[in-house]
């Protein structure tokens, strides 16, 4: 009986409470962030985000574009294959895969960095020191990081989409010997300008989630330097869960079951 109730508490109640308290944290971050406090900090954090994430985003998106193209072309060879791989990459890539990879990179790189930086500040009492000075650490530390994510993630999504399409095109043309014009046409046929702006919008929402989840884990770190490691890891896992669910939901809301553009 007591083990059952313990299980219910651990598996059901605690996660729900965690989600609620993260949502509350996010709401507070939103309210504080709307006052847009220190642009200097936001710019520094944003450029740091771009520097750490962009190389990784480009590598992963290029490879993803290339590998999807090779596999799709090989499998579709019966129906004149080749160029249709461009359609698959153009559609599935731009709408879901490339944005998701970009957000995953930001979550893993910048989310981890934010959580460990704030976690280290928490355990060495730097956040307490701010509190005692009467400075709101939320405004000083959390808000600029959330802003950086909201501004930086859409940019990563755009880079990811572009690199993915380039990867697909180059591999199609240079390695698979698909006709240049036909490959380009099939890639572009399925990508609308609307998909790109949707990507930016989606990136901003995913970025907000990453920023909130990562700063919250860092901000509420307990248990010394071991705790900082735990918080960092949790920040990545949890922000990826949030990003993944939100991404699927947004795709569904935006595109519904209408699959071919």
């Amino acid at each position: 009986m007591s083990t059952v109730s313990l299980l219910v508490k651990e598996r059901l109640l605690d996660p729900v409470l965690e989600v609620l308290s993260t949502a509350l944290f996010g709401f507070r971050a939103l309210v504080v962030a709307l006052r847009f406090p220190y642009p200097g900090d936001v710019i520094a954090l944003l450029s740091r985000l771009l520097i750490t994430s962009i190389p990784v985003v480009m590598a992963v998106a290029f490879a993803a574009g290339a590998m999807l193209t090779v596999q799709a072309a090989a499998s579709l060879s019966l129906i004149g294959g080749g160029p249709f791989s461009g359609t698959i990459v153009g559609l599935g890539g731009v709408r879901e895969v490339f944005p998701l990879l970009a957000a995953a990179a930001v979550a893993a790189r910048t989310g981890a960095e934010f959580a460990s930086a704030l976690g280290a500040m928490r355990v060495s009492q730097q956040i307490d020191a701010l509190e005692v000075m009467g400075i709101d650490p939320f405004r000083l530390l959390v808000a600029p990081r959330v802003w950086a994510c909201v501004l930086g993630t859409p940019f990563c999504v755009v880079v990811s989409n572009t690199t993915g399409i380039v990867g697909s095109f180059l591999v199609g043309v240079l390695q698979l010997g698909i006709d240049r014009g036909s490959m380009w046409q099939h890639l572009m046929m399925s990508v609308h300008i609307g998909d790109l702006t949707t990507g930016v919008f989606k990136g901003a929402i995913l970025g907000f989630l990453i920023g909130v989840v990562a700063t919250r884990e860092g901000f509420e770190t307990t248990g010394g330097s071991k705790g900082v490691g735990r918080a960092t890891n949790r920040a990545v896992v949890r922000s990826m869960i949030a990003v993944c669910l939100a991404s699927l939901m947004l795709t569904y809301v935006i595109y519904g079951k209408q699959v071919l553009g």
Binding site: L101, A104, V237, M240, C244
Partner: peptide
């Protein structure tokens, strides 16, 4: 969890796009 969260959606998305094409 991160592996599952990336591979799962990408697999599903790939299925949806390729299905309409095939």
């Amino acid at each position: 969890v991160p592996v599952a969260l990336v591979v799962g959606p990408v697999g599903a998305m790939l299925a949806m796009q390729s299905l309409s094409l095939t």
